[in-house]
Write a protein that binds this DNA or RNA. Structure first.
Lengths: 192, 192
DNA sequence: AACATAACTGACTAATCAGTCAATTATCGA
DNA sequence: TCGATAATTGACTGATTAGTCAGTTATGTT
């Protein structure tokens, strides 16, 4: 059953995501994941040959969602700064609305699990952003630093703001931080 | 023997640091750490009652080194931008020169190990930076965003640059990246 | 209904885990 | 040199680990 398959598989991934962010990768056993997902231990290994396979599948899946969210509602004809701001806001909002996924990505990226291969593989999903940055540099919208450095600073600034919002108490004005955060990175990169 | 004690303790911490960055926290067993350090398994538990204790001690130790490096060679009478640049360069250089420590901190901070208490505790070591930022805002050197957000963006930008340098091939002009990186964060924060 | 196939189960295993502790060794002052 | 104390050892334990597999159940086709 196509439906059934998807259900169990999804249940396992959701359980894993939740537990990984709660207890870390090695801190979570496959038995715990199976239990949380409501399946037998054997079932987990039907879908993912090894635990490492599960972690990597989860990472690719989550990164896919992130990069899809990132590109949403971009006006192709809009001005450069607005496009960049939309992408940046998309990144931040995704992080706030998908805490577990956000934390999981952070954990994975600073863990020894990630290889240069995986990093490069994921970078392919950012072609869109890369092109935009190249365009921005060519058109004199942003300064002529290395595109890779520019992207890294841009992306990490969004993560910093998400972490800042997640860590702070709820009295914080989220929209203010979002505005301020973008201003900082925009003024840093903009050529004017 | 004071010397002996320090030696074994230090050997354990160094071994742990190395293996943690190679294989993660749970991916490294206390037996492996003991072996790498050249001591018996029991000895490890003389110095650190539990594995978690070892991880936390290591974190505080490393963070201490970092915050000490951060403040080095700051000219008290210098102009604000130079002081900030010196701190930023110190952070980046420390990361490049202490890769294992740098990666360990990153791993710890994005792991479920870290509690709000630990984060706050470590923040106390940044009083110096906090004061400087407050001063910068008061004197109109940098813009009036929340000091916490400013510090987070400042600190994370240095980490981004270190990661960028560590990930790239050796042909990269390190000093250029260092200059560019600081320019980005400075222009982002500066009030002019 | 009858069959084939795919999905699922959970008891099981060999390996490994963090942590213990009784025995041993090194270091010290007197 | 002796006796006390502190540091160190590694075999050991009960719990837990990732992963297996023979058997069971559910599903789709004819």
């Amino acid at each position: 059953m196509k439906e059934q398959i998807k259900d169990k598989r999804k249940a396992i991934m959701e359980a894993a995501l939740k537990l990984f962010t709660e207890r870390g990768f090695h801190g979570t056993s496959t038995a715990q994941i199976s239990k949380e997902a409501g399946v037998a231990t054997g079932t987990l290994f039907n879908y993912f040959p090894t635990k490492e396979d599960l972690i990597n599948s989860l990472y690719f899946e989550v990164k896919g969602e992130l990069s899809r969210s990132m590109g949403k509602e971009i006006e192709v004809q809009g001005i450069f700064k607005d496009k960049l701001k939309k992408i940046w806001s998309n990144l931040v909002r995704w992080g706030i609305e998908n805490q577990d996924e956000f934390l999981f990505v952070g954990q994975f990226c600073s863990s020894p699990y990630i290889t240069k291969f995986t990093r490069d593989e994921v970078m392919k999903e950012y072609v869109f952003l890369h092109k935009l940055v190249d365009e921005g540099i060519r058109e004199g919208e942003i300064r002529d630093f290395s595109a890779e450095l520019t992207i890294a600073m841009f992306y990490q600034s969004s993560r910093t703001v998400v972490n800042f919002i997640l860590d702070s108490d709820s009295s914080l004005d989220e929209n203010k931080v979002l505005e301020d955060g973008f201003q900082i990175i925009w003024r840093g990169l903009a050529d004017k």
